[in-house]
Design a protein around this nucleic acid. Structure first.
Lengths: 238, 238
DNA sequence: GTCGGAATTTGCTCTGGAACAAACTCCGAA
DNA sequence: TTCGGAGTTTGTTCCAGAGCAAATTCCGAC
């Protein structure tokens, strides 16, 4: 809440922002230029909603930097994180799944930089840009798989295994090598982890403390470093 | 295991089989004819796999009659049902999500009648047939939503609520009005329900017995009739 | 520095529902 | 008609992990 969120269209977005990203990688410079000229860019603070479940899907987004949690809120106000989206992916593609409202809320998990386009350009993108359709549907399919995995996990695994799996997924997606292991490179609380694994922050805390004693992880407030990914893997298999 | 599965291309499939189904509803009779002429049809007994997780996705399918359970098997051999697919939907659309192996196993929940096409026709269908792409992506999106809902349910609800929800979903999708309520019109065991709700058949049995005493449901072996959907709805809300 | 709120740790209790066990019922095949 | 296996019911035990409570640590704001 430091400064008001800025919503400026930056003076000039560089083509290199998009050229290496899958949905755009087959395009020519001129096409990328056109796409960028139609985009707005915006920076979001950590912990704010980019769009919300049920709201009309007016824009779709490309996460350039940062991480986003896809969450849903239950009638009783609990929130469940379905998946994390790393930089370089599209989000809010309601149109891709035949909807005109967003199916979930996208909340920044760290400070994030996002491009967006009005949804009416979606069909144009799909039609005109080679590879865009294929890649986005691949993304949707991949997410379906992820969520599907979550169901399996929750159905068959113990809390400790679920937390281990969540951690492993996070370091794969968003891990950054540091001196004594791999760190999750955005702030993550016990509470966040508990929402990701359908348990309580207390239990997560206990589990992490246990691992810390055994040297599998190290953690400070809002920071978790996995020191021994292999051992964690063993834990996750039960 | 009565008779060997027949894999005949029936003498002549009637256009009316497809005309009213969303992915094909915008097509002309001639197009439908072409599509049907490329299809093989086959009848499956209850409880057999139409295709299996991880196998190369060589064909895609349209379920004309019956019900299919989408399941995954865990390393320990438990199977988890992710969703049920009613007649009239496509399945095995690996290509639609950018995969070349099936992401899950499709198991018949009742005797079923299925059309199928070789996967190499997929791109043709998408390109040539108006509405086919939109409708299939809508289907994928819908399934993503369903699975997503399962995650929420498993994360936040008690077993009794989950079973109630599962039952409500089933009667919505596949319910048939009978004298004293709405019956699930394919054979379903306590075991099946437990795989759908991530619990044990014992607990499901207890829950159903309780409801039967209260007059919410009636059940015989492999058959469940919901007598009071509204009361069940109340239960499902917790 | 120091104050206050957020994040974390830890202890204790209590319960939903899994696990194990056993009996019973139904249905199709011989 | 009987038999056998699949499906179902019911009882008992037990524990992972939720819920509640409280203390402690950390960090940013002033």
């Amino acid at each position: 809440m430091a400064d008001a969120p800025d919503r400026k269209t930056l003076p000039r977005l560089d083509e290199s922002l998009l050229t290496h990203l899958p949905p755009f990688s087959r395009l020519e410079k001129r096409q990328i230029r056109t796409i960028l000229d139609q985009a707005s860019s915006r920076r979001y603070d950590v912990g704010v909603a980019i769009f919300e479940e049920g709201h009309p899907a007016e824009r779709f987004y490309m996460l350039l930097d940062g991480y986003v949690r896809v969450i849903r809120i239950t009638p009783n106000g609990e929130q469940i994180t379905a998946l994390h989206i790393p930089a370089g992916q599209l989000l809010g593609m309601a149109r891709a799944i035949g909807r005109d409202t967003y199916p979930a809320t996208a909340m920044t998990a760290s400070e994030s930089l996002v491009l967006s386009w009005p949804m009416h350009l979606w069909d144009t993108f799909i039609r005109d840009y080679d590879g865009f359709a294929t890649e986005t549907y691949k993304t949707v399919g991949h997410r379906l798989g992820e969520v599907h995995n979550r169901v399996i996990e929750m159905a068959t695994q113990q809390v400790e295994q679920r937390v281990a799996n969540a951690l492993l997924r996070l370091i794969n997606q968003t891990g950054r090598k540091v001196e004594d292991g791999i760190e999750i490179d955005f702030p993550i609380t016990r509470q966040d982890l508990s929402e990701l694994t359908a348990t309580t922050l207390h239990t997560v805390s206990r589990v992490l403390s246990g691992w810390e004693k055994r040297g599998l992880v190290e953690s400070k407030r809002k920071r978790i470093t996995v020191c021994d990914p292999h051992a964690l893997m063993v834990v996750s298999q039960g």
